[in-house]
């Protein structure tokens, strides 16, 4: 393998990945409100949506907004809301059960905070 081949191979590999993504063309980037109050919540929220079909997820603690990019072919937005409920976080569209809410750590009990 010489240098030109190296460049070609790397460029090809990257293009291939890009193309496959472009071909999918179903990526939706959206943001919505998720309750959460601390770094722990942020980590939990981002990890909960680290699943197939989700390209990136970033939770902003200040605005309580989750910005998420996902492939609509693989996953739907409602699935994402349910995933978040599953780890104990309410979203603007769906609230988790008391049992699910119990899963968040003591200091992350965001519902209590809202009552103050």
């Amino acid at each position: 393998m010489n240098f030109k081949n190296f460049i070609k191979t790397s460029a090809f590999a990257i293009l291939l990945i890009l193309c496959s993504e472009v071909k999918a063309q179903n990526t939706i980037e959206t943001s919505f409100q998720v309750s959460g109050i601390c770094e722990m919540c942020k980590a939990r929220i981002e990890k909960a949506v680290d699943v197939k079909g989700v390209k990136s997820a970033n939770y902003d603690l200040d605005t309580h907004t989750l910005t998420i990019a996902y492939s609509s072919k693989t996953i739907s937005e409602s699935d994402i809301h349910l995933l978040l409920n599953e780890v104990g976080h309410d979203t603007e569209k769906s609230t988790c059960s008391d049992e699910q809410y119990d899963r968040v750590h003591g200091c992350c009990k965001y519902r209590e905070h809202e009552n103050h």
Partner: peptide
């Protein structure tokens, strides 16, 4: 400010 959460970053040790 009552009820603010105070946590050691990256751990689950915290209080309000």
């Amino acid at each position: 400010l009552p009820g603010a959460s105070v946590i050691w970053s990256g751990t689950n040790q915290g209080t309000t």
